[in-house]
Amino acid sequence: MHIEYFQLVDRVETIDADREHVTCIATVPESSTIFEGHFPGHPLMPGTLLIEAMAQTSGYMLLSRFDFDRLPFLIQVARARIRTFVEPGTELVVKGALEHDGSGFAVTNGEILRGEERVADAELRFRTMPFPTDDLRDIVREYASRLGVSS
């Protein structure tokens, strides 16, 4: 996880054949400038970044589902629950499940686990749009491939 670069997923473990379920691994780093402020002497992974980790996890599934033809943008978070504290060094399993594939939008359910313990969950809605440039599509495809997403 490279928090400062907003890269919150370390690897994509599985995307099922129907591309409706995804599982990612995300390990919170031991140190980050973010922990200097959140909070001094009591470092915790910000809840907003846990939501972003769920969004990125679902995003990789959607990129695969759309064969990198469309880019998902997070537009709505519903029923988000941050259920416990997450400290530096924690390995998280981040999951996403497709709820609905609509015309120009998609809805997923995200979940984060630490072992058997549920850390966070939310319903996530995405606007899905064509990539603004071919260069960006190539960059995203290459990065997703390094994480384990096949195109």
């Binding site: 537009i75 709505q76 609905h100 594939d101 609509g102 015309s103 120009g104 939008f105 809805v107 809605r125 606007r127």
Partner: peptide, 23 residues
């Protein structure tokens, strides 16, 4: 537009369809 997207989602779910709004 955001409300409309919510409405489309609920209509899609209720009637088991996919409204081709982009088209």
């Amino acid at each position: 537009s955001l409300e409309f997207l919510d409405i489309v989602f609920d209509i899609d779910k209720k009637f088991g369809i996919k409204m081709p709004v982009e088209q």
